[in-house]
Every structure is written in structure tokens, then in C-alpha cells.
Design a protein around this nucleic acid. Structure first.
Lengths: 344, 344
DNA sequence: CCGGCTCGTTTAATCGATTAACTGGAGGTT
DNA sequence: AACCTCCAGTTAATCGATTAAACGAGCCGG
């Protein structure tokens, strides 16, 4: 590939490189006569000139690149939406995203940080692929933005889903449908999920608002996968009629998928006999269950956007406290009124 | 952030920048005395020097960055595995990945190409998030690698899944279990899926090998989602006993999920009454169905690796024909022998 | 004692664009 | 006529590293 330099354009247009630069890099500074501009542009077009951003970056000290360090691109299907949000904003702002996946390896993280700062990126985003509290790696610049994680110590611009409000919305949906015996199929504590505690808080809050005494027997824990959900839902459905829940709020859509299986196995129909709300709005699951699952969406795309907007200075952020991104409820068909014998 | 230049290190070590450069950029060319090397390294460490790769890139004409243009990061959960494969190789080779998502917009594609070539990336990968034939965008360098797509015209290094072999493996698994009436739940033609045709070819090939006359009634098409699978599977299961299939090969795991639902609704047990094989090994679906789904995995990670290896010259590729990456079968629990009355 | 050879290091050109400072000439003012 | 002001563009320094070529000191052989 032949590289065309600015000098080549200048020569062809019969002007200096300075003139070419001024014409091509927008109308700042001195004004160049329209004829000359025209001539330069034609020359550039003719020789197929493309400005070399490495050289420009060296001179201007900005690369129009943003580093995105993430712990794992691979293992979750959420990643895409978050990247998409970040990427969209980057493009809108004329920036490129440089992606590094550290696979949760501290050494890899250090190297990535070196590589990116060496690369003179204009901004940095540190992303987790599921909501958690992180020890900020040393060497992470002050103005880096945390995406889907909150700093264990210190103040940093950060954005996380508003899990508490999401949990509340889920339960509120069930309360509104008339349910009073609402179970929470939670993740086991050993997974140490921030989301687990917060969604539970939302659950309790709405029960309190509705004047429903929480029944500890309805807060069950299992592994947050389909199998765990099936097993936990099974236990609940095998309770005596008066103790059995008429609705379940599941920690995630996979558990909800398991709850569907448990209900079907017992010939219970959703939502006639049992209402279910999930969490995550997992692509290819939630919408495809039968009936489609009412669930709370994680705002990955929006968080990705937010982080990139803050990183590029398009939006201000208060570093003192993580920004809470709302988790909208996605109403589908898994919630209905409780069965008649439980109605009012 | 104070920027430390090589000159600062040189000053502190009492040598020239040339010496610092030679010490720091590996032991090529002239040899520097061990004492000086030591001194330089200490100085660099002391002032916290980090080489400015923009400057280096300008001089050496290589950026150690690889551009990855993809049509949609967002809409599929596969993307992650492909990125992960590419990213891993890039890291092994000391390169960074610059990601651009064009969202299938031709204009965005053109801009991305400009941005990346302007950025002087050392290599380019053009990725699709599902297997298809693409019109290679004009301006894509000759040595760019195509990932999960084949060029409509011209010869390019490219890698795609071996769908035909995958389809064959799926059907062979069923034949081996003793099935003779094997349905193919295909995607509708209007989606124009390359994979559809190839998997069907694999299906036919294995039937032929096994001496089974293909029954056109067992090749049904539907929308390739759970609902389509449910409906198509339902139609097949409602056939008379002697026409009904004992096994189904589904175009993808979502359709398989629908087939499960159809079977359950008819009180058929998997795999006792019906065997099912899917395709994609979709995370969070295949393994979580009950029983876990036997399926064919799309080798996204491996294709990502392959593309990056070719892009970086670690591996040679024949541009004349796309490289076919094997799709391994993932055996779980949805395949068994046909029901007794159909056995031999 | 001098030319030649190593060895370790420095000098200086270079990559390609940006931009502050300057220039030369047209036109205006007093 | 002398001086100022614009205008349209040029000159040259600069960003920070790499590297071919040059350099000087020490050593050896004749």
C-alpha cells in the first residue's frame, strides 16, 4: 500500500503543507481563499490522501481513542450491549474504542493499563461484565470511568444498575396484580452478588409498602441457574396450599426458566396458577419462554453510553457516588391475578 | 498527569536518548554495557517512564494495533466468544484490538475503514456476527481477514464454521442412536441463511450414508426462534404414529427449546419418546434445558483466534477458499434410542 | 609511533502532521 | 510619501521515539 503524505497533496496543489493542513482540518485559524481550498481538496481527492492519525496524535497530544478494559468479554452475553452503548457514543464523538480483555487476571490488567496509557488514549473505561464492587487497580487514572461496578474505596465516576428499584418494580408488579404470597427465589449467598442483596431490599421494601408481612419461608436461595430455580421453585410449589406462594420473583431469568419447568411438571399453568417475574431480560430466553416472561431489564446499553459520555466529557458525573441506572420492567405474559381461591 | 519523556530518563541516567532507546527496546543492534543498561533501567523506573507508543508508531510505521470491524456487536450473544478468541491472540502477540461496530450501515463501514486505516492499524479483520456471504466493502485492504463470512466475489482469507459437517454430525448422532425417522426443523428460506442450506446438505448426506430415504414431510421450516420450533415440532408430533419422527435435528437451540415445549405439552418425554439435537450451543440455553440439550457448537472462539492469527501473520491462509472450522458435537442428554415400537 | 579495529555511545535525520510566528503585497489613511 | 492593516499563505519548530552513521577511546600489531 503506497502511503500518500500531506506533502504529496501540497505538491500537487502547489501550496505548502501548512495550507493543506488548514484546509483539511476544518476552518480554524487563518482563512484560506475558496479557490485554494478547492484546489487542495481536489488534489487530496486525486491522490487519495488520508490523514495519518498517528502523526496527528503525536503533534496534538490526543488520539481520539478510548481504552476499554473489561474483565471478561467472553463469558456473558451481556457484554455486547454494554460495548454497543459505549461504542455508539464513541462514534458519535469521533472516537475509537480500544478493547482489552483482562480475564480477571491482575497481571493482565496491569499490562493492559500500561499498553493503553502508553497508547495515549484520551480516556479510559474499566468495565465489569456483572455488577460488583471492585478494588480499583493501582495505576488506573483518576478520570477513568467505572462501568457496571462500584469502587471498593475512593471516589470514582461509576455507573451501576439500580437493582433495588428493579427488585421493587418486579414485586410491585406482582402486588398490583393482587398477589400477597410472593416468593423471592434468590441466589445463594456464597456467590457474593451485590445484586442479590439489593434486589432483596427492593422486595422487602415493596412488601412493607403494601402492608404484607414477609414470610421467611418464601425467601429461598439456590444456585442462580435454571437447575437451581427448578429445584427452589419445586420446593415452594410442594408447600401446603395456604403456605404456597402464588407468585415468584426470580433472581434472574435462568432461575425463572427453571421455575417454569417446575410449574409445568406439576401441571400448573403460568400465569393462571402461578405468576413469575424474572430479572435481566436475557436475550433469547425471556422473550422465548412460553408464555413470554415478564422481567426486569438490566440497562447495559444505557450504562455503556453513560460511561462513554462521562469518559469523553460529554456529561458530568459525581464521583462521590455511583450513578444508578434505572432497570425498566418488561411486561410480557407471565403475570396475572392470583388463582381464584386466593382472590379477595 | 505529567508526561515523562525518554529525554528525562536519559538526563537522569547521564546518557543520550539513543542509549535509552536501545536499552529499553530490546537487545538489538549495538550492545550497551551492562552497567549503563542497569543505570538506564533504574532511571526509567525511578521517573516512571512509559514509552509513548504514538511516537514509536510514527517512527517505526507500525502500531501494534489490529482493527476489528464488525457488523453488530450488539444483537447476538455470540460476539463475545469471537472477540475473546481474537483478543487472546492479539494479546499473545503484543497487539491491541481496536473495535468498531458498524451496525450494518454501509456509510458507517466506510467511515470505520477510513478511521482504522488512518490509525495505521497493522492488520484488519472484518467480522460478521452470523455466518453469511458478504460483498466485501471497497477499500478493505487486500490482506484483511474475513471472520464468520465468505466473500461474495474475489479471494480473501476467511474463516467460517463447517456447517455441513456440523449438520452431518448432528444427524449421525441420531442415526447412531438407532433413529430412522429424523426430522429437520429448518429455518425459513426467506431468512437467506447460509447455514440453513449447508446444515440441510449435511442432513441429507448422512441419511444417504445410512441408506435412509429422506421423507420430504420431515423437512419442515419455521421462523428460527422458540415459537417457530414449537409450532413446527407440534405439526410433526401430531402426525400419525407411522409418519411421526422419532428424532429431530433443529436448526438452532432456540428452535430446539420450542421443540421441547411442544413435546412437553404432548406429555412426551425427552429423550425417551423423542430425541433432539440442536445447533449453536447457545450459552444459557442449551445446558439449562431439561434435559440438557445435545447440540452442535459454533466454534466462535476458535474462528476468532484463527482470524487474528492470520491477520498477524502467525498462520498462513489460502485466500482462494474460506477455512472451514469444525463444529464439535456437545453430547448432553437429549438423545436416546427410539421408543420400543420403532426399535428394530 | 601510527594506522586500523573494536566497542560503547552520541549525533542527527526521520516519521507526518500541526501551528505560532512571520512575510510580502494590496489597499487604506493621514 | 510614509505608515498601518489585512489578507493569504509560508517557514520552521515541534510532538517523542528510532536508528543509520559518526565518533572517540582503548588496544593491538607491525
Amino acid at each position: 500500500m503506497v502511503r500518500v503524505r500531506m506533502a504529496d497533496v501540497a505538491a500537487r496543489a502547489g501550496v505548502s503543507t501548512a495550507t493543506v493542513s488548514m484546509v483539511l482540518s476544518g476552518g480554524k485559524g487563518k482563512r484560506i481563499s475558496p479557490e485554494t481550498q478547492q484546489r487542495v481538496r481536489e488534489a487530496a481527492e486525486a491522490v487519495g490522501y488520508r490523514t495519518n492519525s498517528v502523526a496527528r496524535s503525536l503533534r496534538t497530544q490526543q488520539t481520539r481513542m478510548v481504552g476499554l478494559i473489561s474483565d471478561t468479554i467472553a463469558s456473558t452475553p451481556y457484554a455486547g450491549r454494554m460495548l454497543a452503548g459505549a461504542n455508539d457514543v464513541a462514534r458519535e464523538q469521533g472516537h475509537l474504542v480500544v478493547l482489552v480483555d483482562t480475564e480477571r487476571d491482575v497481571e493482565a490488567e496491569r499490562l493492559a493499563l500500561h499498553a493503553l496509557t502508553g497508547q495515549q488514549v484520551d480516556a479510559l473505561i474499566y468495565a465489569c461484565m456483572w455488577h460488583r464492587v471492585v478494588e480499583v487497580p493501582s495505576g488506573l487514572p483518576e478520570d477513568a470511568v467505572l462501568l457496571d461496578c462500584a469502587p471498593a474505596t475512593g471516589a470514582r465516576a461509576a455507573v451501576v444498575p439500580d437493582e433495588r428499584a428493579g427488585g421493587a418494580a418486579a414485586v410491585r408488579e406482582l402486588v398490583a396484580a393482587g398477589h400477597r404470597r410472593i416468593a423471592f427465589l434468590d441466589a445463594e449467598e456464597r456467590f457474593g452478588l451485590v445484586a442479590s442483596r439489593l434486589r432483596y431490599e427492593g422486595y422487602l421494601q415493596v412488601l412493607a409498602e403494601a402492608g404484607i408481612e414477609p414470610d421467611p419461608a418464601l425467601h429461598v436461595r439456590a444456585e442462580p441457574v435454571a437447575g437451581g430455580g427448578r429445584e427452589a421453585a419445586g420446593r415452594l410449589l410442594d408447600l401446603s396450599a395456604e403456605r404456597r406462594p402464588t407468585a415468584m420473583f426470580c433472581f434472574n431469568d435462568r432461575m425463572a426458566m427453571g421455575a417454569y419447568a417446575a410449574a409445568h411438571r406439576r401441571e400448573l399453568s403460568i400465569p393462571d396458577d402461578l405468576s413469575i417475574v424474572g430479572y435481566d431480560d436475557q436475550q433469547l430466553i425471556a422473550a422465548e419462554l412460553d408464555p413470554p416472561l415478564t422481567t426486569i431489564a438490566l440497562p447495559h446499553y444505557e450504562m455503556g453510553r453513560w460511561a462513554m459520555e462521562v469518559a469523553l466529557g460529554v456529561r458530568q458525573a459525581d464521583p462521590a457516588v455511583p450513578h444508578l441506572m434505572p432497570c425498566p420492567i418488561i411486561r410480557r405474559a407471565s403475570v396475572g391475578p392470583p388463582p381464584a381461591q386466593f382472590g379477595d
